[in-house]
Design a protein around this nucleic acid. Structure first.
Lengths: 228, 228
DNA sequence: CAACCTGATATTGTCGACAATTTTAGCTGG
DNA sequence: CCAGCTAAAATTGTCGACAATATCAGGTTG
């Protein structure tokens, strides 16, 4: 609801920095510009046929999102997430998404809950069909977590999670190709969370969401440990 | 530790946007520029003797912090926090600071804990002397919450809370002059939190920090209700 | 008299150019 | 052959000017 469709940045209106920002964000998150890759102002300005002014503003926003790091008089580079930093993000997500689930249990309308159920049923069918791949992280408002966060009706929470942290997690996924492998497990957990929200059981919704995110983090930790 | 001393923005090195950003941030948070006040680019550029380029970058950072809102082709204005938004911030704080306390219990060094104890003792003496005013929110690393967050050793958490949310809370305090009035109560709660951290009891530290922030929010809610 | 339209003014958005700094390439000396 | 220094090239930081848009004042009309 905040950004109608980030998939197509073809919005003709709005300002240049908006478009360039959306463009670069996608390019970075999907690995088009590799980790640690340089964000060259002259090159990008030339490619997109704009001046460096608006471009610099777009880069500034990328920095605010944590997608690039900038050193004075040197330039901006795509952030290289250490595993340490990824785990830090998971800790923040555990806290925020837990609270988001709690608020969702208190604030979601019955229509929103019905939509969420519907989404979950779709996911269920998809898993039955294709138990192998199954249930990879979706994007935008197809994503389960995205919907829960929206359901919190807390605009600051929505901003933090949907505009910043989720992009970083996506970035990491593309950089490392982390296969989650806990598809069916995650699906069941999602169902339980929706059950709690439907009952209006805020306490339980938070506990289960936290456990869900924690499990995901521990899964990542295991995979990192396996790679030595 | 992140920003050595925000109090004195007299750092001669670093770039112009850095200095202007720190300057404007202080001016906004302390109410020098009133809520809803216009951030005029030509005026500020003239006053500080700089061009509009770096100024615009500084304004962009203010927007990223949530201290100003910007409309295309119109300009930037100091954010006017509705009470609704303040409560949203408290919900986010409850989640994040709870997790920060948990992590602090796991990660703080014994030196850091000792320092924290020392700070708390200072606060205790100040309360005894001056039970009336007492225990107003301090700034920078004199503040209790600030120290806990630092103790989490989670850089993303530190950024979110210390560079964004705390400034917004300060802004609101200056705008509305919220007298906390729960000085001694808060002090006791702080002591219990440090006790839990010292014992390494992460679960308890989180619970008590969350209760502490929640109590603060409920206090604000009461005061808002009284004013009708 | 109020509401609306119209033109003047001011502000934001964008651009190209210059200055300061960093990086790179080449050269000299050991 | 490699280390260190020097100069050239490229990139970032900053500036002033122009174009596009919004705001405001005044006048006109119902």
């Amino acid at each position: 609801m905040n950004q109608p469709a980030a998939v197509l940045a073809e919005a003709e209106n709005s300002t240049i920095p908006d478009r360039i920002f959306a463009l670069l964000k996608e390019a970075i998150v999907e690995g088009e510009i590799p980790a640690g890759g340089k964000i060259s102002e002259p090159e990008l300005a030339r490619i997109h046929g704009i001046s460096r002014g608006p471009l610099r503003e777009a880069i500034g926003r990328l920095e605010a999102c944590g997608l690039v790091v900038r050193r004075p008089n040197v330039g901006a580079r795509v952030v290289t997430l250490s595993s340490q930093q990824l785990l830090e993000i998971y800790h923040v997500r555990e806290a925020l998404e837990g609270m988001a689930a709690r608020l969702a249990a208190q604030n979601m309308t019955s229509e929103e809950i019905a939509d969420l159920r519907h989404l979950l049923e779709q996911h269920g069918r998809q898993i039955e069909q294709d138990a192998e791949h199954a249930y990879f992280q979706r994007e935008g408002d197809l994503d389960f977590h995205y919907r829960i966060v929206q359901g919190s009706h807390n605009s600051r929470m929505i901003n933090l999670l949907c505009n910043d942290l989720y992009h970083l997690v996506r970035l990491y996924r593309y950089q490392f190709g982390m296969p989650s492998k806990r598809g069916p497990r995650a699906f069941v957990e999602h169902e339980h969370i929706v059950d709690a929200i439907e009952r209006g059981d805020a306490e339980m919704a938070e506990l289960m969401m936290r456990a869900h995110v924690r499990a995901s983090r521990e899964n990542v930790e295991r995979q990192l440990a396996e790679r030595e």
